[in-house]
Amino acid sequence: MSISRRGFFKAMGATAVALSVGKPMAAEASLQTENELYGVLYDGTKCVACHGCEYDCAEAHGFTDFDLPKNPPFRKTDDKHRTVVNLYQTSKGEVPRKIQCMHCNQPACDAACLTQAMHKTEGGPVIWREDKCMGCRYCMISCPFDIPKFEYESTNPRIVKCDMCIDRINEGEIPACAYNCPEEALLYGKRSDLIKEARKRIHDNPEQYVDHIYGEHEAGGTSWLYLSSVPFDELGLNTKIQHTSYPGLTKGFISSIAPVDILLPAVLLGIYEATKLNAKTEEEI
């Protein structure tokens, strides 16, 4: 077991370069680009829980046999439902809330995905790309809102989640749910404009709204924003969620990889050389 020192350092250098090149940090969306993101503002005071958006969503994504019972029970999104509207028992009686992907500014699923199948587009929607995904479900582990769903019964399963109707957006349309909402509870637009609009609504009707826009800072900011008449935790939203981005949680680890890859071999080689001398001296004695 011997190797020339020069040969070793050559190999080590090559490996270190190979491992450290192309390891930028999770894309830090700057404030500038965040203002350019598009999103949807959901105003819970306007929603009447007609479930119309669920039908429109199913239709827009090719689920033709969609049907709802008359008084639907509490449901979650799943591999056939990208969005659901539930009624919550709150301090102000029954209040509806729509569930769908929050389209985080810095999504955990995007950072988690090892094939870039989960992808935050420049416009705001977080999309899933079929040709890249290998079905590891790490996005499901990572998502703080439990949004990506998996087709367990399929032999070629897909990850199913709201894609903010990216195909419609690319054709100049707006998301199906926002387009069809009869009560105008869903407003599609530039995220910065939506935040201004939300603030204005709170300012104009302070008794109607709680003074908070859910999604402005939650999980580092999301493209989907909520206004509500009751505290958000009564609507099943996690109000203790951190206000910094989720990819930030793994940043420390990821940035330590390249230094360890480069420094540890040098340390190991040093120890090897030191103990080798030691072993030889022992033999001589």
Partner: peptide
């Protein structure tokens, strides 16, 4: 699609996995 991780057309370099 595990091949995507190996051959390098879709490196998710910010992913721990």
């Amino acid at each position: 699609n595990v091949i995507n991780v190996v051959i390098g057309n879709n490196y998710g370099v910010s992913s721990v996995l």
